[in-house]
Amino acid sequence: MLAPGAIYLVYLGGLAFTALIMLAAVLMTYEWARLVRGSHLNADYVIHAVTAIIAVGLAGAGMPLFALLAAAVGFAVAMGVVVWRDEGKRWPMIGFPYILLPCIAIVWLRSGGDWGMWTLYWLLAVVWATDIMAFVTGRTIGGPKLAPRFSPAKTWSGLLGGVAGASVAGAATSIILGLDSPILLALISGATAVIAQIGDIAESALKRYADVKDSGALIPGHGGVLDRVDGLIFAAVATAFVALIGILAEEGKGIGLGIFVL
Rank of each mutant, 00 (worst) to 15 (best):
L262E: 12
V73L: 01
I53R: 07
M117N: 06
I132S: 02
F234W: 05
A43Q: 13
G231I: 09
Y209K: 14
I245Q: 06
K213C: 10
A153N: 15
A191E: 01
I132N: 03
V46Q: 12
Y121R: 09
S189N: 02
V225D: 06
L100A: 03
G224N: 09
L179C: 09
Y30M: 11
S204G: 13
L185D: 11
A67G: 07
V10N: 01
V10L: 04
G224C: 05
R208A: 12
F260R: 11
V82D: 02
G143D: 07
S167V: 09
I94E: 08
L159T: 06
V237C: 01
F17N: 06
H222R: 00
I53S: 10
T155L: 03
G116N: 04
L206Q: 14
G143T: 11
L15M: 12
I219L: 00
I99P: 03
V237R: 00
L15R: 12
R90Q: 14
V107K: 06
A147V: 08
T119M: 07
A55S: 10
G170K: 00
F241Q: 07
A196Q: 05
V107L: 07
W108D: 10
L257Y: 08
T173R: 07
A243E: 04
F234K: 05
A153G: 13
V82Y: 00
I141V: 15
A217V: 12
M63E: 08
L35F: 07
M133R: 07
G95M: 00
R139P: 07
I47D: 06
G199T: 12
V107N: 08
T173H: 11
S181A: 11
V36K: 09
W32C: 03
G60K: 02
A67L: 04
V168A: 10
K145A: 13
A217L: 08
